[in-house]
Design a protein around this nucleic acid. Structure first.
Lengths: 159, 159
DNA sequence: GTATCCATACTCGGATAGTGGTTGTCCGAGTTGCTGGGG
DNA sequence: CCCCAGCAACTCGGACAACCACTATCCGAGTATGGATAC
């Protein structure tokens, strides 16, 4: 029930990309976040496969968001990294064993599975309500404008 | 981000225990759920450590719920098995790297961590609202009374 | 001066090892209930 | 008939391996850039 560390990295990268217009390379983002460059590359590839970012090949290439940051939710990023498989998967225990229920009695989902699914839906809803733009605005509000400018300049120096 | 299979087993065991008054052994529950007896024993020990069930030693021993089934939530069981550690753990990426934010600017939690925490809180709330009794009632409503009686008799034969 | 070609450096992408946690298993310590014998 | 001691069977509890997913890393394929060259 642990969320992959790559999710945190991917979220930070998406927020960073939301403040820039030109491509940013995976190496640059790895330096920014101070994490393994190779492994971060893997996460960015996952985001690319999910269609959240686009890769730009060649010199001065990198990654760019495919949509406006307000159109990308935290849930999108989480699912892109973790995969769409639900956390809980019912194995139909009620049908097993010497006193298992018959398939006719199990036309509906198991109440346990329903409860777990409801919890996961609540989780997804909460994450869907927050966008990458929201995160960027909140993060910008906590640091001084000078540092913000320095960060942007470091991330994307003038041509 | 996958929930341990032991959670499902533990929930089924708790529901079964909620319908009975005498102790039920781990072996019996393993036979009922048709899972590895040794590993299920491990999960039951976790429930015992968490204070949800009590072990009764000796012949005709087993496990009994410590509280009324309406006082035990699904969340209690999940946390007992998975542990209380939150799914998402912030590693303060914003403070790292050459353009990291200063500790003074990070007095408050990272917005990303806040968003993930909010999602987890929503999940926990949903799971807290469902009790073991609720599950038992719902499951009983889906099977015939005859089968229910057969199950109870198999689980706990008359002395 | 301009257009073209080429070499270079930089980018992503997928295939390849290492490690921690979940899954699965085993045997020992302790307790209860039964049984047999004695009073 | 009642009580007690001993035995046996059953229970949980923690310590010990096996497997899988996450973590981490590497090298190859492809492309835009910049400069050198020919016209």
């Amino acid at each position: 029930m642990k969320i992959s560390a790559g999710v945190e990295w991917a979220l930070h990268c998406c927020v960073a990309l939301s403040g820039l217009d030109r491509p940013v390379s995976a190496a640059k983002m790895a330096e920014m976040t101070d994490v393994s460059a190779s492994y971060l590359a893997k996460q960015l590839q996952a985001l690319s496969r999910a269609g959240l970012i686009t890769s730009v090949q060649g010199n001065a290439g990198g990654y760019v968001l495919t949509r406006a940051p307000e159109k990308i939710s935290v849930l999108d990023v989480v699912l892109a990294i973790e995969g769409p498989t639900p956390m809980f998967e019912c194995t139909e225990i009620r049908q097993r064993g010497p006193v298992g229920a018959s398939p006719e009695e199990c036309r509906d989902s198991c109440p346990i599975a329903k409860a777990m699914l409801a919890g996961e839906q609540a989780w997804r809803t909460a994450l869907r309500e927050v966008s990458i733009q929201d995160l960027g605005v909140r993060m910008a509000g906590e640091i001084s404008p000078e540092r913000m400018a320095a960060m942007l300049n470091w991330m994307q120096p003038a041509k």
